[in-house]
Design a protein around this nucleic acid. Structure first.
Length: 276
DNA sequence: AGGGTGACCTGTCGGC
DNA sequence: TGCCGACAGGTCACCC
């Protein structure tokens, strides 16, 4: 049961769906930590023992594991993945968090350790708010309204790609899907968000909802292997239209896909299909 | 306040 | 084969 993840919102949601029902109602037996993650746990592991797992929610790319006294905020970073199973092999060098429960063991594997598991007393606690407080609207929620999205773009002077990645307008659009949704909407990644017309913003809004919804339905994206917390593979047969295709022909018009850097991240686009 | 940059850490891949 | 640099799915803490 080898697990790998490429965690954008769909992968995080697929992970959640794969273990939320199985862990709900469990009681925590023990928690052990490996090497340091991005932030410290924020409480003694022993404090978690004996608590009940009430459920697992998601906010942006964070998983929120509700306990009878507080909650755990879990982030997969760039390279993290979770597995939940009755029995697991001995921990490996990249397993840095493990929670034994009455219904199985939850384990975080994260080679780069950009991920984190943080305890907060409640979601309104400053500890949680520091991580969640600035997050934008959920794209797969009905609160993701077009008028508000259009208004939010109008107030931003930054390149639209950066605005999408920033997560303060809408959460969950990572580096792969940012390139993909801009392609679908015909928008140049470098254009300032405030310069996007209302009709184009509507296309972008629809593309975000469609791409993320399909990716969740497909069981998680990706370019390499992705497995959920049950060890099942996800298949991203929604092939990337532009991501990681520098120099290759655009799937729509055959013009070579371009790669540029924005904020030290790669962006891919078709100059012929994305003119606005 | 908003926008730009560096930092965190490990693994993999391509070029010489 | 080995070494070295570039790059990788995220986002926070800083500058100006």
């Amino acid at each position: 049961m080898i697990i790998q993840a490429m965690p954008e919102l769909p992968e995080v949601e697929v992970t959640r769906l794969s273990f939320a029902d199985r862990i709900a109602g469990a009681s925590v037996v023990s928690v052990t930590m490996g090497k340091p993650l991005r932030w410290a746990l924020g409480c003694a592991p022993a404090k978690l023992a004996g608590q009940l797992v009430l459920g697992v929610r998601r906010r942006g790319k964070y998983l929120l594991i509700d306990l009878s006294d507080g909650l755990l905020l879990v982030h997969l970073g760039m390279s993290g993945s979770l597995v939940f199973a009755r029995h697991l092999p001995a921990p490996g060098k990249h397993d840095h968090f493990e929670m034994q429960t009455s219904q199985g063991c939850l384990r975080l594997n994260d080679p780069r350790r950009f991920g984190a598991v943080v305890y907060a007393r409640s979601q309104s606690d400053p500890v949680a708010q520091k991580l969640l407080g600035h997050l934008g609207v959920e794209p797969l929620d009905e609160t993701f309204s077009l008028p508000e999205f259009q208004a939010a773009l109008k107030s931003r002077q930054t390149a639209i790609k950066q605005v999408l990645l920033g997560g303060e307008v809408v959460v969950g659009v990572g580096n792969i899907y940012a390139s993909e949704v801009l392609f679908l909407a015909g928008i140049r990644p470098t254009v300032k968000a405030c310069k996007i017309s209302r009709p184009r913003a509507a296309l972008l809004h629809a593309a975000i909802v469609e791409v993320l919804t399909k990716a969740v339905e497909k069981g998680g994206s990706t370019l390499r292997d992705f497995s959920n917390a049950q060890g099942e593979k996800g298949y991203f047969q929604l092939e990337a239209m532009v991501y990681d295709r520098a120099g290759l022909p655009c799937r729509r018009c055959e013009a070579p896909v371009r790669r540029i850097m924005q904020g030290q991240r790669s962006t891919f686009y078709c100059a012929a299909c994305q003119k606005f």
